[in-house]
Design a protein around this nucleic acid. Structure first.
Lengths: 204, 204
DNA sequence: CCCTTACCTAACGGATACTAGGTTAGCCAG
DNA sequence: CTGGCTAACCTAGTATCCGTTAGGTAAGGG
């Protein structure tokens, strides 16, 4: 097998194993075995386990980032663009279930690896948030009663999508439209309400 | 130190280490060191690393379950009870930040441990979901256009709370009311809309 | 004075990231 | 055809870490 093809096979296998076992639980031995190869071959392509992991993080986060960049901006009504983005997002998860699982595994056990994960994830956030900030009415979000408005909205968005994505991989029979509908129903009312300036639920 | 006190110290230290490093990354050595003790002492109190982990899962999940059980049922308007429950939930996270982090770490790397985690978490879900199902209008949720209605609502709820909880531990300066307000604003509109029979966002 | 209790030192065994060095198979110059 | 070079892959380790255990010490109470 050519080096490039082997490298691709290893990356696919490694994504699976990292998703299933997490960073410390993923053994190079098993990654190699699933790639039809012995461990030293992995080191012909990647300098270390960390290097391999970083490479996969960069790749999958970039692909997911691209989903937002391609579907969110536009001239259609916000709700349609938002719905399409979420649909495309789950379509990516559907075709790359292990990539999603790997990205959403929060903590690895290795502080350096955690820092790496946080750094790459922060780059994604920095790329995607401006797309939302460009929406009309977004200043309502940013300046709302909630101090860290945009940032916390991001946390909520991420929490819902991530939770549904993980749940979905355990319930593969559920059609994508249902998952997308749940995400929309959970997220849309809040965004709509704020961007239209109707304000927030008051705190008693 | 008495055995009971030492055991408590070890449980606290272990919760911290599991939260910071995840199951495979947590070393008995470090748990022991933070407990002011050597590793064999840990084994005087717990049969194994897995046993210690299970014990902590049971304990913290039970405490969080109790929060819902105490605050959600009642005769006040649903929104107030829901808001109070969420406030109490984040109050628990505030006083037990490591417990929250430990519970929300999805995957451990060890299949047996993952199964254990899933089992205890499922017990919590089974205890809390009926509280929501008892709400007037909940049949709208369960029988909605979304097939697995209640279950997916649970996933969303959990996703939002978990995301905010993790974010909050990284931003300790943010007052609890702001986090609670964000959670309410993210979750309440959807629930309200469905339980009042106003239906869902249609899918285009 | 002994026995229990809390804790220790020292080590074993297994797993794991990573490496040194060799083997095979195809390709290409002569 | 042939000899040698390269590229893909291998066997066989090494060093380290980690869960766990065996067996012992020391202090305090009865």
């Amino acid at each position: 097998m050519t080096a490039a093809a082997r490298r691709e096979v290893i990356e696919t296998a490694a994504t699976e194993v990292f998703a299933e076992r997490g960073y410390p639980g993923a053994a190079i031995d098993e990654i190699a075995r699933r790639s039809g190869v012995t461990p030293p071959v992995v080191y012909d392509h990647f300098a270390s386990k960390r290097d391999l992991y970083r490479r996969l993080l960069e790749r999958h986060f970039a692909e997911l980032r691209e989903v937002w960049r391609r579907h969110l901006p536009g001239d259609d009504p916000p709700r349609e663009r938002f719905a399409r983005s979420i649909d495309a997002w789950f379509a990516y998860i559907e075709s790359h279930p292990f990539a999603g699982l790997m990205l959403f595994r929060e903590a690895s056990g290795d502080p350096d690896v955690d820092a790496m994960h946080a750094e790459v994830a922060a780059r994604s956030r920095a790329a995607i948030l401006p797309l939302f900030a460009a929406e009309p009415g977004a200043e309502g979000l940013a300046g709302s009663v909630i101090g860290e408005g945009l940032e916390m909205a991001w946390v909520v968005l991420r929490g819902v999508l991530q939770g549904l994505a993980i749940w979905w991989t355990d319930h593969p029979g559920v059609p994508r439209e249902q998952v997308v509908a749940t995400a929309m129903n959970s997220l849309w009312f809040g965004f709509e309400r704020v961007t239209e300036g109707e304000g927030w639920v008051p705190l008693d």
